[in-house]
């Protein structure tokens, strides 16, 4: 494995200003401003997170609900800008945070392939060259020309997965997406991801399920309350996480 860092996360902290009550109109805002009641609950979703992921490594991110897993992935994907620190990544990132998030429901599957591809920053020519492959993998067949609003959630997820993986990214971010579709498609998508491993893809995988993490990843970390409390070999960390889950019960 080459020793080039694919992702460098350097002292990243993310602060959410959570208002005690949501203020989204001017009147309330002014009243609270004048009466000095504009209190914010400062909430650090991530606190001083630092780690480096080498090219070709496959990391699992474990943690309870609200531990900051999704915030971490969104920060790496560039959706959230860190309050402090920096994130550097080398290569194309395919975020699969929620499959089909970029779809327009009134658009047909065909039109959505181009829209979604464009959202990920690809050119028309590139998407055109991948088009047949995407349609074939999604198994949508004749439904490709129906509006996406008529699709089942499994069909949407299949199409989203097909587009996200067709572009051959160098870094794949998976946020509990492998539980979509029926068993057949799940096996197919796992096989697809596995075939991408052989090409030396870097993976960040979020899950609650240690079996899935052991299946896919060779390294893992545990996040709790915005901090990394353990990281290292996947087998070791998964055992530790299982222990944590059991002790909470």
């Amino acid at each position: 494995m080459g020793k080039q860092p694919a992702i460098v996360v350097d002292n990243v902290s993310v602060l959410f200003n959570m208002n005690k009550e949501k203020v989204d109109n001017i009147k309330e805002y002014l009243i609270k401003l004048v009466t000095n009641k504009l209190h914010y609950n400062e909430f650090w979703a991530l606190k001083d997170i630092s780690f480096t992921i080498e090219k070709g490594e496959r990391w699992g991110v474990l943690g309870f609900n609200g531990a900051g897993k999704s915030t971490l992935l969104k920060t790496i994907a560039g959706v959230i800008k860190p309050t402090k620190g920096s994130v550097k990544s080398a290569g194309i990132i395919a975020p699969m945070l929620e499959l089909g998030a970029g779809f327009d429901l009134n658009y047909s599957g065909r039109e959505n392939i181009f829209l979604y591809g464009a959202t990920m920053g690809y050119s028309r020519k590139f998407i055109q060259s991948k088009y047949d492959q995407i349609v074939e993998f999604s198994e949508l067949g004749e439904f490709i020309d129906s509006p996406v609003k008529n699709y089942s959630s499994g069909m949407r997820a299949r199409l989203g997965f097909a587009i996200a993986t067709a572009v051959e990214p160098q870094i794949l971010i998976l946020d509990e997406v492998l539980s979509v579709g029926d068993a057949k498609f799940r096996m197919k998508s796992e096989a697809k991801i596995r075939s991408m491993f052989d090409k030396g893809i870097t993976v960040l995988f979020v899950s609650h399920n240690t079996n899935q993490v052991l299946n896919i990843c060779d390294k893992a970390m545990i996040l709790d309350h915005g901090k990394i409390i353990a990281k290292g070999d996947a087998v070791e960390i998964c055992a530790k996480y299982d222990e944590m889950v059991n002790s909470k019960k």
């Binding site: 969104k74 994907a77 560039g78 959706v79 975020p95 945070l97 929620e98 998030a101 970029g102 959202t119 990920m120 920053g121």
Partner: peptide, 9 residues
Amino acid sequence: ASVIKKVYV
């Protein structure tokens, strides 16, 4: 919002 929350654009 759904796109902006999930993908960098």
